[in-house]
């Protein structure tokens, strides 16, 4: 399925969307762009960090709610669109649901495994307990000590980038994965953006490397470099200049609009985006080969 078709099929206005659950690598920026192109509105973007993806969607007017631990430009500073929306209501006011990284992780965990809420200690003492009315202070019935109750998060749709998948969505991921697994399993629909599509035997040869099995996946899209400008382990380096340029070129709303036209709205799809990057993208392609040792699954 094309990414455009997957988004028009599975994402409606007002959806709760997980995008960027891996933190700063494997961010599905190709999906960010397509959500902007299709003009989705009133989205709730959910992710621990997700680098500049959420800032782009806010600037493009797609977002009315942000659920997460950090929004900005990890190597470049603050996110101008996030600040404008939170401070001045431009282009729309946004509601911010604050979490810490671990508490949003446990909220996904609860959502994934059918727990109504989960008790945690790591957010005690933080004013996030006051700003996020969903998190409640309670007494541990066993020890009598204070505990924070974090309700389950069950997003409508999760986007994830994987190094390789087969056509059925059985996916291999390696490197750190942040909250990819819990956030995806918690979601109602899973859309996989595969850097490479491989034969089913390749995935089946190493089931321990499967983070998300195909039977839970609703759409598989072959999108090379869907993570750009974020890195993908063994595939793409991080485009640090791109993050820096984004910071410089989105300082006011008109600048952001120009940036968004040039890099998103005026391009029909991710193939055109890759073509526009041209040699800049090729320079980020990882050409080296440092494979892990094979794992033996023989039965006799």
């Amino acid at each position: 399925m094309s990414l455009s078709e997957a988004i028009s099929t599975f994402v409606q206005d007002g959806c709760n969307i997980v995008l960027g659950a891996a933190l700063e690598n494997a961010v599905p920026f190709a999906a960010t762009h397509e959500l902007i192109r299709q003009g989705r509105r009133e989205l709730n973007m959910i992710a621990p960090i997700s680098d500049i993806s959420t800032d782009m969607l806010i600037g493009a007017g797609c977002v009315t709610e942000v659920t997460g631990a950090w929004v900005g430009n990890v190597s470049g500073g603050m996110g101008h669109n996030f600040r404008r929306a939170a401070e001045k209501g431009l282009p729309h006011p946004i509601k911010v649901n604050d979490y810490s990284n671990f508490t949003i992780g446990m909220a996904f965990f609860a959502g994934a495994y059918g727990l109504p809420y989960i008790p945690v200690k790591t957010i005690l003492g933080s004013d996030i307990m006051k700003s996020n009315k969903n998190i409640r202070l309670a007494e541990d019935p066993f020890s009598g000590e204070p505990v924070a109750l974090v309700p389950a998060l069950k997003p409508d749709v999760a986007f994830l980038v994987v190094q390789r998948a087969d056509k059925a969505g059985n996916s291999h991921i390696w490197g750190s994965t942040g909250l990819t697994q819990e956030a995806s399993i918690a979601a109602n629909k899973i859309i996989v953006l595969a850097d490479e599509i491989v034969e089913p035997e390749v995935i089946a040869s190493d089931p321990s490397r499967v983070l998300i099995p195909g039977f839970g996946v609703d759409a598989v899209c072959h999108v090379p470099a869907a993570c750009h400008p974020a890195p993908l382990i063994g595939k793409w380096k991080r485009d640090n200049h791109f993050f820096h340029d984004y910071h410089k070129e989105t300082r006011d709303p008109a600048d952001f609009d120009r940036w968004c036209d040039e890099w998103v709205r005026d391009l029909p799809d991710h193939e055109a985006y890759r073509a526009k990057l041209g040699g800049q993208l090729e320079d980020l392609r990882i050409l080296g080969d440092i494979p892990s040792a094979p794992a033996n699954y023989a039965t006799e």
Partner: peptide
Amino acid sequence: VKLPGSGGAPD
């Protein structure tokens, strides 16, 4: 000023 947020610092 809306700062970027907590990340994992509270934890």
